[in-house]
Amino acid sequence: MQRVNMIMAESPGLITICLLGYLLSAECTVFLDHENANKILNRPKRYNSGKLEEFVQGNLERECMEEKCSFEEAREVFENTERTTEFWKQYVDGDQCESNPCLNGGSCKDDINSYECWCPFGFEGKNCELDVTCNIKNGRCEQFCKNSADNKVVCSCTEGYRLAENQKSCEPAVPFPCGRVSVSQTSKLTRAETVFPDVDYVNSTEAETILDNITQSTQSFNDFTRVVGGEDAKPGQFPWQVVLNGKVDAFCGGSIVNEKWIVTAAHCVETGVKITVVAGEHNIEETEHTEQKRNVIRIIPHHNYNAAINKYNHDIALLELDEPLVLNSYVTPICIADKEYTNIFLKFGSGYVSGWGRVFHKGRSALVLQYLRVPLVDRATCLRSTKFTIYNNMFCAGFHEGGRDSCQGDSGGPHVTEVEGTSFLTGIISWGEECAMKGKYGIYTKVSRYVNWIKEKTKLT
């Protein structure tokens, strides 16, 4: 034993070699072989497995989906700052455009905790909710729209109204504003409101030439003092309507412009014939205590009207009353817009006519005020429907199939267009061939041609 100890002390290297040989010859039971080890760690190889990531292109799944990435790591994937920024906006807080917040056709661009709407022409605001041009839906104005110097929408209202708090709607500024039905039992019968379409306001006024200088022999019209197929109006439903009495009662109609003036057809009036105007009328054979009678003290036909040349060209006249009318729910003026808007309103496509005229061709006159909704007829169809001249200051309205029309005794009465609950004068009943005849239409004086003249002559002093 002493000898062994001496050998170990003198030859430590020998001992180490012996131990190493023993270990190498022993069977290893701690580690699995290569094949079995792979069965336990069965993990798919990654895209760049075996390579240094710093030297390969980034992978979106590896960089940002398996674990949260930084902007720089995302930049490695896209290799483009702009594309990385677009991805980053949604990656950080989701897609803010998912709810489609942009209105009126706006395009949404996502941002971090926010979004941006790219608005089409005519709109602005956070969600493109603000109209900035009158060309689109009248700028959301209830009545009139004008573009300011910086191309912003400025709404306005006709006389007797003021802008509401929203700067879009119009509200009454006087007790009985024009064009409004205020009798409670008839307010439910107000005709369907007309909503502004998209309009090209630059070209809204037709490029028409008034044929002022045409000389033409007097034409022989049949029954051209021209509501057939209409309905009984309720008291106060058309408070701007008046009836004219002269040699015979209810020979023509008219509309209240203001307390002192009536507008009617020029062919209705004769110099030297006494005319009485009755406002607030409903049943011409009954006294309903809503009527107001006034005498006409002055007749002003349009300066281009000449019955000797043509009885229905420039067929418009103004009547001055001896005493002002007292405005109330049964006696209310009709609204008159400017030339541009009167023309736009007419193009809405349908209007209402009213009167006490004959209820059928050569038949009896109506006792109760009649009204009828009539569609506008395109000019080409209008011209083809008659052998008589249709001037540019006239328009056609009615039904091709016949059966409904204005008729004798309705002449001078109103053709009105309702705009968001307020009625505007767009025409004056003038003439036609018979009444409600198939293929024939009622012919009306186009008020847009005469609004400046009306307003100039009827100013209240």
Score class of each variant (00 low, 15 high):
R226G: 09
D322W: 01
T29W: 03
V359R: 15
P172T: 08
I210C: 15
L14K: 02
T215W: 06
T264P: 00
S169V: 07
T386V: 04
P333S: 05
E323N: 13
G58E: 03
E124N: 11
V359G: 13
C97R: 03
Q57S: 06
K362M: 13
L376S: 09
R3F: 09
K109G: 08
R384P: 13
C18I: 12
V199A: 04
L103M: 09
K126L: 13
S156L: 07
F399D: 12
T215F: 13
N304W: 10
D131P: 11
V273A: 09
T218H: 10
G409Q: 14
L425K: 00
N313F: 07
Q57Y: 04
T225R: 05
L460Q: 15
K234S: 11
C134T: 02
R358C: 09
F395N: 00
C170V: 00
H415N: 00
T209Y: 08
G229H: 04
R83E: 05
V92I: 09
C18R: 01
D93W: 05
A233R: 05
C382Q: 02
S182N: 08
G272D: 12
V228N: 04
Q241F: 14
P197E: 04
Y444L: 15
F360P: 13
T290A: 07
T461Q: 13
R83I: 11
I15T: 03
G432R: 05
N36W: 07
H400G: 13
K311T: 08
D232Y: 08
Q237M: 07
C268G: 00
H289C: 10
V228L: 04
F360M: 13
L19C: 06
Y441G: 02
G230A: 11
E124G: 15
L23H: 02
T445N: 06
V4Y: 03
D93Q: 15
N258Y: 00
G50N: 08
Y91R: 15
L383W: 14
G253K: 10
L383A: 15
N113Y: 04
L346E: 12
E10R: 02
V273E: 14
V416C: 09
H314N: 11
A265F: 02
L14C: 05
K188R: 09
K260Q: 04
A397S: 07
E288S: 10
I136V: 12
E231L: 05
N127R: 06
R83H: 14
T194N: 08
L23W: 04
R294S: 01
E35R: 06
A366Q: 14
Q143T: 02
P120Q: 13
K247I: 10
D200S: 11
G179D: 01
F345C: 02
E208L: 12
I256H: 00
D223F: 12
S114W: 09
V416H: 07
T84V: 06
V326M: 15
C134W: 02
E116M: 12
K146S: 05
C28E: 01
I262V: 10
V4R: 10
G363R: 04
T194S: 09
N5T: 10
G439C: 13
G246L: 04
V296K: 00
E433R: 06
R379L: 15
G58M: 04
N283V: 05
S184V: 11
E129P: 05
F123N: 14
S148W: 06
R404T: 12
S350W: 14
C102V: 01
R379M: 15
N328G: 14
P12W: 07
N147W: 07
E35C: 05
S220N: 08
D93I: 14
C335Y: 00
L32M: 11
K188L: 05
D410T: 12
V359S: 14
F87Y: 15
Q90P: 09
F71E: 15
L130V: 12
Y312L: 07
A207V: 04
S350Q: 14
L425P: 01
I17S: 01
G21H: 05
V228K: 11
A26P: 00
K51T: 11
I256L: 04
R43P: 09
I300S: 02
G349I: 02
R180T: 04
I40P: 14
F176T: 06
H400P: 12
I309H: 08
F251T: 07
I7N: 06
R191M: 10
W453I: 01
P101A: 12
D95R: 15
Q167P: 03
R140C: 12
C407Q: 04
G432A: 14
G160N: 07
R191P: 14
T84S: 09
Q219N: 05
K362H: 12
I390F: 06
R180I: 04
L321P: 00
K39F: 09
S107K: 11
H361F: 07
C145T: 03
L19F: 12
S365E: 15
G412I: 07
Q408P: 10
E10T: 05
K234N: 13
V296W: 00
A192I: 06
P324N: 04
A397L: 01
E73R: 08
S204V: 06
V153K: 09
F78G: 15
F55G: 07
D223H: 09
Y305P: 02
P101C: 02
E231Y: 04
V451R: 03
D249A: 12
C108H: 02
L244D: 00
F251A: 11
H267P: 00
C141G: 00
V4P: 06
K146C: 04
I7C: 05
T215I: 07
G106A: 03
H302T: 02
D232P: 12
V30Q: 12
R364P: 14
A307D: 08
S25C: 07
N306I: 07
Y444K: 01
T276D: 05
D200Y: 11
Q219P: 12
A9H: 08
C28P: 03
H400Q: 07
G413P: 02
V277K: 00
M65W: 06
G125S: 12
P333F: 00
W431C: 15
S156N: 05
V269Y: 03
N203P: 07
N127E: 07
N313Q: 14
F196Q: 06
G421P: 02
Q143H: 11
V195T: 08
E98K: 11
W118I: 08
C119Q: 03
W356K: 14
N306M: 07
S365C: 07
G254Y: 00
R449P: 13
C18E: 01
I300F: 06
K168T: 06
D198R: 09
L376C: 02
G421K: 13
V77I: 06
T417E: 00
L20Y: 02
K260E: 02
G412Y: 14
T461V: 13
V263W: 00
K68L: 06
N138Q: 10
P197R: 03
E401T: 13
S107W: 05
W240F: 03
K438N: 03
C155M: 00
Y352W: 04
A9T: 13
M437V: 14
N203L: 09
V92R: 10
S11W: 05
G427E: 01
I275T: 04
E66M: 09
I262W: 00
L367R: 13
S184G: 10
V331E: 01
K146F: 10
H314R: 02
D111H: 09
K446W: 01
F55H: 13
T458R: 01
G21Y: 12
S107I: 02
T133Q: 06
N5K: 13
L24Q: 01
Y22A: 10
C382M: 02
W453E: 00
R3P: 07
K137L: 12
Q90L: 07
C97K: 03
K137R: 09
E73P: 15
Q90Y: 07
R75V: 13
A207E: 11
P375E: 06
R373M: 04
S114E: 11
I390W: 05
D315V: 00
N138A: 14
K152S: 11
E401F: 11
S354F: 13
P375L: 11
A337S: 03
A149K: 08
R191S: 11
V92N: 03
M8W: 12
W431Q: 14
K339S: 15
Y441N: 03
V248A: 04
T290N: 12
D111K: 11
V374N: 02
M437C: 11
L383P: 03
K51P: 14
I112G: 15
M437A: 12
G236S: 05
H302W: 07
L325H: 00
L376T: 14
Y305C: 00
E129V: 06
T386C: 14
E53M: 06
E286D: 07
L319V: 13
H267Q: 06
G106Y: 04
C252R: 01
V242Q: 00
T422G: 01
F395M: 02
V195P: 09
